[in-house]
């Protein structure tokens, strides 16, 4: 009895809770910085959206005024609508990336080099891509000009036309995004179980049937990841817009992320409250997507475990 007692005494609080606490200690640096630089600014930003503030003078509390103004702002709706276009057309990166990945997933001489060439657009900076595509689209002397002339659109400028500017930017944005999806699928294809394909073949599956029912389900994780990064990429599209059109012509290629920057931080901006209101709206939209995907991921994991 005595021995037992003394042993029980020697177990300190630390020893008792060590297993519970140590992960938090390891996580602490990350969590601290994440909350200072990511979590806290979200709340500060939402807070600022209720004020009128130019960044210099004292801020004035205006309640929901910024949001009310947003509802009556033509450019806000144009940007929102453009974000929707981005969401829809940016998704093309996923099937195109998949197609290219399957095409490149073969063993021939020099395939590594070819794969890395296809992956190259993802490595170069978005700014460079935006700049180069702006030159491509240049009327009269751009690379695309001769083709436009062929279909009778002489001197047509894609980026100066309010109806085509957004599509022009999305097209440029697809170039690196396809490469990103491609690499996700290539790694996915490496992990495919050859036995299952073999089994499928023996059961008489081939061509599209084999791909749709046997290969694609195994690529589920890659697909999930590709869709998530593409959705987020579409919603936060900023650099391409900034480089290629600055939201022009007259705000018709603007997206929420760039509109927020324009209102809050550009040369003619410094409407911190209004910019924060736009950021809050964008954040809410993103939150819906992110929560939806996290929920799906959680559900899938549980299914896998069962």
């Amino acid at each position: 009895m005595e021995i037992n007692n003394s042993k029980a005494k020697r177990i300190t609080w630390w020893q008792k809770n060590q297993v519970k606490i140590s992960p938090w200690i390891f996580l602490a640096p990350g969590l601290i910085f994440f909350s200072i630089y990511v979590i806290a600014p979200i709340f500060v930003s939402i807070g600022i959206s209720f004020y009128q503030w130019d960044g210099l003078s004292p801020s004035i509390y205006v309640g929901l005024q910024n949001y009310i103004e947003l509802l009556d702002d033509e450019y806000f709706y144009i940007s929102l609508w453009n974000n929707l276009k981005w969401l829809i057309f940016f998704m093309l990166a996923v099937p195109i990336g998949l197609g290219l990945a399957i095409f490149l997933n073969q063993i021939v001489f020099g395939i590594r080099l070819i794969k890395s060439l296809f992956f190259f657009p993802f490595v170069i900076s978005q700014v460079v891509i935006g700049l180069i595509f702006t030159w491509f689209y240049q009327p009269n002397y751009g690379v695309i000009a001769p083709f436009l002339n062929l279909i009778g659109l002489e001197g047509f400028s894609i980026l100066a036309n309010e109806n085509t500017a957004t599509y022009g930017i999305i097209f440029a944005g697809l170039y690196p995004q396809i490469a990103y999806c491609l690499i996700l699928y290539l790694t996915g294809l490496n992990n495919i179980n050859p036995e299952q394909i073999e089994a499928g073949r023996m059961d008489g599956a081939k061509g599209f049937h084999l791909f749709w029912n046997i290969v694609l389900p195994q690529l589920r994780h890659a697909t999930f990841l590709a869709i998530v990064v593409t959705v987020i990429g579409a919603l936060r599209s900023f650099d391409m817009v900034a480089i290629m059109t600055q939201g022009g012509p007259y705000g018709y290629s603007n997206v929420l992320a760039y509109y927020m920057f324009e209102q809050a931080l550009s040369e003619y901006g410094y409407r911190m409250g209004y910019g924060s209101a736009i950021a809050t709206v964008l954040f809410t939209i993103m939150m819906f997507y992110i929560l939806f995907f996290i929920y799906r991921m959680y559900r899938n994991e549980r299914e896998d475990n069962n």
């Binding site: 100066a160 022009g248 012509p249 007259y250 705000g251 003619y268 409407r271």
Partner: peptide
């Protein structure tokens, strides 16, 4: 125009001028 008018007015005004010219 963009130095005489306040920033917000200038920015919206010039966007308007560009839209008008097109």
């Amino acid at each position: 125009y963009d130095r005489d008018a306040p920033a917000q007015m200038a920015s919206e005004g010039m966007k308007g001028f560009q839209e008008y010219m097109s």
